[in-house]
Design a protein around this nucleic acid. Structure first.
Length: 243
DNA sequence: AGTCATGTTGACGA
DNA sequence: CTCGTCAACATGAC
């Protein structure tokens, strides 16, 4: 389910509940739910893969992990993680991680790290990247402190687009290559968003779960790469290994 | 039926 | 104390 662009779609769908008062909260989430009863939602925000339901002095943070789902004005029989009921309507989340962020969100989040945020800063991302010269690029791209919202699909697609081998070492990449990659992270994420809305996302994949390289017709390699061992799909002919 | 995956966290041991 | 490894969480596609 998640990756930043999908969370933006979720935000679009639930923001109509802004200013609604919470009548009831249910579900198995291990947070103090009662404190939010009769409180008004003052805003919904997102940070990377986080959905934030904002109240006066705290926010409920929801992370859909791999299989999280949500239903608006509807419910299903699988165990409810957290459900909010309003005078008019309800909002239900399943299979997700829920926590509470106390106080001012600005004290917890560097908005410039969120690839989908207006405050996104490629410059800040570059500076943070430079702190990990020995890391593999496939690992660093998934670092949510640097590229919040960037997930495994976006990783594979932007490395393919920019012709960089996922096992390339950050410090060995030419400056220009890194800058192109960082730029592509945001550009591709917004294309992802549009395709996801049109339901054509998977049809647009060039690398992720693909078997043949569209550029050179050679087979793509599937390998669990880096420290995190997430799936990578890449073309050893088109994507240069900097090491 | 078993494996695996758009992800993160916390426990545990070296 | 810090680092790496791994299980846990839990759903659905193949």
């Amino acid at each position: 389910m998640p990756e930043g662009p999908s969370i933006l779609i979720l935000h679009e769908e639930i923001k109509k509940f802004t200013n609604q008062k919470v009548i009831e909260i249910s579900g198995s989430a291990k947070i103090d739910k009662d404190r939010f009863i009769n409180q008004k939602i003052i805003d919904f925000k997102t940070f990377g893969k986080h959905t934030l339901i904002c109240f006066k002095d705290a926010a409920i943070r929801i992370h859909l992990l791999m299989f999280g789902t949500y239903l608006i004005n509807d419910s299903k029989s699988t165990p409810l993680k957290i459900g909010l009921r309003f005078n008019k309507g309800e909002l239900n989340f399943y299979t997700c991680a829920v926590s509470v962020v106390e106080g001012n969100l600005n004290d917890h989040y560097d908005w410039s790290a969120d690839i989908m945020n207006d405050k996104w800063s490629a410059k800040n991302a570059k500076e943070k990247l430079d702190e990990f010269p020995k890391a593999m690029i496939c690992d660093v791209l998934l670092d949510q402190n640097i590229f919040a919202g960037l997930g495994n699909i976006i990783k594979n697609e932007i490395l393919y687009r920019t012709k960089i081998h996922p096992e390339s070492i950050v410090g060995k990449l030419p400056e220009k290559k890194i800058k192109t990659l960082i730029k592509e992270a945001r550009v591709y994420s917004f294309e992802f968003l549009e395709w996801k809305k049109e339901n054509t996302l998977t049809a647009h994949w060039l690398a992720h779960e693909k078997k043949i390289c569209k550029r050179c017709n050679l087979p793509l390699i599937k390998k669990h790469t880096g420290k995190n061992k997430r799936r990578s799909y890449f073309c050893t002919n088109c994507q240069e290994l900097y090491k």
